[in-house]
């Protein structure tokens, strides 16, 4: 009695993970930060996430069709959703709907599929999208809100939807009544106007470290990041290097001149440093592979962000820093190849 069996190569065990599982864990890790964002700044962020996700999946679908790739495995890998959510977290909650449309066209169509699709993109698609709309539509990208606790008029879901889709604020006083510069904007323009940092920080916009509300959102993103570290979805080198380099580099400036330089923790808890350290600079595709390479990559992101904040034209610089380091990643990998066993 002999029997035949199907043959298939080792390992003969179900794979413990998949691209989709990795992406889903990233999305899960973003949930606390997103909820905190909605808590402090209203439901705008949720609308933006839904919008950009729809556009991202639409362009993913179209590009896969055009490129003749199978739809199911690539639509179901959630990588487009991660790009969409990360982008939505970077834009003002009241940004008009067509912003995410254009942004996702660039993220999915250009930065991802024209470079060869999943795994082939040289640049982080979410950051490409953000930089494109930031440079092309600076006006629309400044519609930031104050934390709801400080707002004269807090916008509900209907007002938010109306604003995003019509571009008109349905509130007496219009845009001026609802928007507010971000803490980083306030800081930058304040310092440029010759005011002292401690004086600027007296504004109710600021909390203990960063901006009011912002610092808590950063905390929740950090919590999500720790979850990813625990699940080994990301490695510790990038976040440690990003935050470490920001702290170390801003410390001497602050010590030398505390009146015109924010203190190190304020840097970390303002803008996109925490989000960038755990979720954006850790993108494996456009980052470095080796441990040493990841340390260099992270440090590069931190340093470039500070340089842009201090001397550049933009209040925050995480997106530019990440894209610049994306360019350097292959070279860094080449020079940080780890030693082999017995070598």
């Amino acid at each position: 009695m002999t029997r035949s069996f199907g043959t298939s190569g080792a390992p003969h065990m179900p794979p413990p993970t998949s691209v989709a599982k990795v992406m889903l864990q990233v999305l899960l890790a973003l949930v606390p930060g997103v909820l905190a964002h909605a808590w402090f700044f209203g439901p705008g962020i949720l609308v933006q996430i839904i919008l950009s996700t729809i556009f991202a999946l639409l362009f993913e679908f179209l590009m896969l069709r055009v490129r003749g790739r199978p739809l199911k495995p690539f639509i179901n890998d959630y990588s487009a959703v991660v790009t969409a959510v990360l982008f939505a977290l970077c834009i003002p909650p009241l940004a008009p709907w067509w912003i995410s449309c254009i942004a996702m066209l660039f993220a999915i169509g250009f930065a991802k599929h024209l470079y060869g699709g999943l795994g082939q993109n040289v640049f982080n698609p979410a950051m490409v999208a953000y930089v494109v709309v930031l440079i092309s539509f600076p006006q629309a990208m400044t519609n930031w809100l104050p934390p709801t606790a400080l707002a004269e008029y807090s916008m509900g879901l209907n007002d938010t939807l109306a604003t995003i889709f019509t571009g008109q604020v349905p509130v007496v006083g219009g845009w001026d009544a609802v928007t507010q510069a971000t803490p980083l904007d306030t800081l930058k323009s304040g310092v440029e106007a010759g005011r002292m940092v401690p004086e600027i920080r007296n504004s109710p916009l600021f909390g203990d470290f960063g901006g009011k509300g912002w610092e808590w959102i950063a905390n929740w993103f950090a919590l999500g990041g720790l979850f990813l570290l625990y699940r080994r979805v990301i490695s510790w080198q990038v976040p440690v290097a990003v935050i470490g380099s920001v702290l170390l580099l801003s410390l001497p400036f602050w010590l030398a001149d505390p009146d015109s330089n924010p203190f190190p923790l304020q840097h970390v808890f303002s803008g996109a440093i925490v989000l960038g350290a755990f979720f954006i600079a850790t993108d494996p595709v456009s980052g470095c592979v080796s441990s040493r390479g990841r340390l260099i990559f992270g440090a590069g992101v931190g340093i470039l962000t500070l340089v842009i904040r201090r001397w550049g034209g933009y209040p925050d610089g995480v997106a530019f820093a990440v894209l610049l380091m994306n360019m350097a990643a292959p070279l860094i990998d080449r020079y940080t190849r780890p030693r082999m066993y017995g070598e």
């Binding site: 999943l118 490695s235 082999m340 066993y341």
Partner: peptide, 20 residues
């Protein structure tokens, strides 16, 4: 189904011969 490599680096982390 086989997907493209996303360069996550897990393979290098678990490789006992310390290869890439």
């Amino acid at each position: 189904p086989e997907m493209p490599c996303i360069r996550c680096g897990e393979c290098a982390r678990v490789c006992p011969a310390m290869l890439l």
